[in-house]
């Protein structure tokens, strides 16, 4: 599985080196969520920086701390590096105080990536919940750019309400690129004519798919992912073609500190993107 990874250490980068990045732009997404477009102050470091869809950076704010944030858009569509952030703690709260032109620290990229090459010649289903769409957006970019390499491509996305659908301005662009975008919300009034219900229902309804040969990538609340996996297995997806992005308290980013340890795996180093059959024994363990 590690062949899908491009960890900082494997790439020969210096994982402890913190680069100074400047906030180029802040895009308000939905309530409590914003995307920060970050550019390296050292242009040569920026030019050398590479990441793969699904990886994350550690963002550092002096006086507040460091936090792991997924890279939420790839470079083909962004001059800087975009990170979509929901306020959840001290660092992200401090981040909301930044303005364009302010600087912060960045080290990375860390972790494993979505298995884009495994998708060649296969149908692909992306299942996202809430802000879990952010780590999948770079994969959407890859699936758009090399469309002919892949089979049918579906995005199943669930959010709390119509107002909290992330990146809604891009759905039309994704659809035009051949990705069938299916959205659903947990709650809505009768003016909403889209789907209501959880994303697992969308997966159970999906008919234009060769499930036995398809690849499924999933990111969202862990409970949602557990039920998505159950629905996928029930539909005939193979356990070794289901991938999940897990969330844990990641601090060092290179599997040294142990804060994100899950069984024998370190989520920051061996994940965050895992093949399901590798982490299946841990997903039902409460302590993990």
């Amino acid at each position: 599985m590690r062949d899908a990874s491009r960890s900082a250490a494997a790439a020969g980068l210096r994982p402890w080196r913190t680069h100074t990045v400047r906030v180029r732009e802040i895009l308000a997404e939905v309530e409590g969520v914003a995307t920060y477009d970050l550019a390296f102050r050292d242009e040569s470091a920026g030019a050398a920086y590479r990441f793969a869809p699904g990886q994350f950076n550690m963002l550092y704010l002096p006086g507040a701390g460091e936090c792991a944030i997924s890279i939420s858009e790839d470079r083909a569509t962004s001059a800087g590096y975009r990170h979509t952030v929901r306020v959840a703690g001290n660092v992200t709260k401090t981040l909301t105080g930044l303005r364009p032109g302010d600087t912060l620290g960045l080290r990375g990229p860390f972790g494993t990536s979505w298995p884009i090459t495994d998708c060649i010649g296969r149908d692909v289903v992306l299942v996202a919940g809430g802000i879990g769409l952010a780590p999948l957006r770079p994969a959407i970019g890859s699936l758009m750019r090399n469309a002919r390499q892949f089979g049918r491509r579906h995005l199943l996305y669930g959010a709390r309400s119509p107002e909290s659908l992330l990146y809604w301005r891009q759905y039309e662009e994704w659809s035009q690129a051949g990705i069938r975008v299916h959205t659903t919300v947990d709650r809505a009034d009768s003016r909403w004519t889209g789907h209501v219900g959880v994303a697992t229902l969308l997966l159970e309804r999906l008919d234009a798919i060769d499930a036995r040969n398809a690849v499924l990538m999933c990111c969202g609340p862990e409970v949602m992912m557990r039920f998505t996996i159950a629905a996928a297995l029930n539909r005939g997806f193979a356990p070794d073609r289901i991938w999940v992005s897990l969330e844990r308290n990641m601090q060092c980013g290179v599997g040294l500190c142990g804060h994100c340890q899950m069984g024998g795996e370190f989520v920051c180093r061996d994940g965050p993107v895992f093949r399901y059959d590798r982490v299946a024994p841990f997903l039902d363990v409460e302590a993990f």
Binding site: G65, A88, G89, N90, G130, G220, V223, E247, M250, Q251
Partner: peptide
Amino acid sequence: LFADLPAGAAAPVRLEPGD
């Protein structure tokens, strides 16, 4: 599952030190 949670609770974003 997608509701905003108070700081300190598990949330569907990468957890931070201190959370």
